Amino acid sequence: MPAHIPSPSPSAPLSPSLVVAALRAGGCVFAEDEAELILATARTPDELTTMVDRRVAGLPLEHVLGWAEFHGLRIAVEPGVFVPRRRTEFLVTQALTRVPHAALVVDLCCGSGAVGAALAAVLGRVELHAADIDPAAVRCARRNVTGHVHTGDLFEALPGELRGRVDILAANVPYVPTDAVALLPAEARDHEPLTALDGGTDGLDLLRRVAAAAPDWLAPGGCVFVETSEHQAPTAVEAFTRAGLTACLAESEELYAHVVIGAKGA
């Protein structure tokens, strides 16, 4: 039975201690921090009760709040949409460092559109295209992205006129091996779309497809950036090299992030 907090009367102040106690009883490790965010977001006592009940029932905090913090931005996140991970901020940083004057950016497997939104926020006047195969993600991305958001499978979603013009191709493809999806935390396994998690037998099916097609879409000097895991990284680098890209691996110990970068020659 989920923990539940009683609804305060309209005149009663919201009690942080009640919220913390309910979250802690529901198994939330960072109950104090989560309580602070929920209390700051809830507009009424009834909404507060509903939000705490949903969190205790196992919904990701970001789905409860309706937003996630990412690269200094507040990204709208809807139920059923992949929650942007803080480690993916490293991919954004790498893209901005290596292609600081990008004019055309594509965010493939965009989910909520967090990566594209973060890149555009720093780059300023940039042509941004985002795409996802999941209609729910596309609806959510349109709330976050000032640009073009397309529905479809990887490059099939993109307008043909982008071919050969992309300066930054960010592709946060799913990379969990199929057999490992069941081992993910329940928040991801039960509340995020399988298409955003399952990367095939070894987790690299979509990465290989991106690597194979990227050279046709990149502008001279353009780069593709894909997040992967530490143990998958060597195979991912090989896939980029085999596609004719100059490939390397960037790592962040702090975020435990691994980004494979493929550059097209000038």
Rank of each mutant, 00 (worst) to 15 (best):
P2I: 14
H4A: 13
P6Y: 00
S7T: 14
S11I: 11
P13Y: 06
S15G: 09
S15M: 10
A22M: 11
L23N: 10
L23M: 11
A25M: 11
G26Y: 04
G27T: 10
F30V: 13
F30N: 15
A31C: 09
E34I: 12
E36G: 15
A40W: 00
P45V: 09
E47G: 08
L48W: 07
L48G: 04
D53R: 11
D53V: 06
A57K: 12
L59H: 11
L59F: 10
L61H: 02
E62P: 02
F70W: 03
P79D: 09
P79V: 07
G80C: 10
G80K: 08
R85H: 08
R86E: 14
R86H: 13
R87E: 15
Q94R: 13
R98Y: 01
A103N: 11
A103M: 12
V106N: 08
C109Y: 02
C110W: 00
C110G: 05
G116W: 02
A117V: 06
A118I: 06
V126I: 12
L128Q: 09
D132V: 11
I133M: 03
N144D: 09
N144Q: 09
F155K: 01
E156M: 10
A157P: 08
L158W: 00
P159C: 08
P159H: 02
R163D: 06
R165Y: 01
V166F: 06
I168G: 09
Y175H: 07
P177Y: 00
L183P: 00
P185C: 11
E187F: 06
R189W: 01
E192H: 05
E192R: 05
L194I: 11
T195P: 00
A196W: 02
D198I: 04
G199A: 05
G200W: 04
G200N: 04
G200L: 08
T201W: 01
G203C: 10
L204Y: 01
D205Q: 11
L207H: 10
L207V: 13
R208M: 07
V210I: 15
A211W: 03
A211N: 06
A212K: 13
D216S: 14
G222E: 06
C223T: 08
V226G: 03
E227A: 08
T228E: 08
E230C: 14
H231E: 14
H231L: 14
T235S: 15
T235W: 02
F240E: 01
F240L: 15
G244F: 03
L245Q: 02
A247G: 04
C248W: 08
A250S: 15
A250K: 12
S252N: 06
E253S: 13
L255K: 06
L255D: 08
Y256V: 14
Y256F: 08
Y256M: 14
H258S: 04
V259Y: 01
I261Q: 00
I261T: 01
A263I: 02
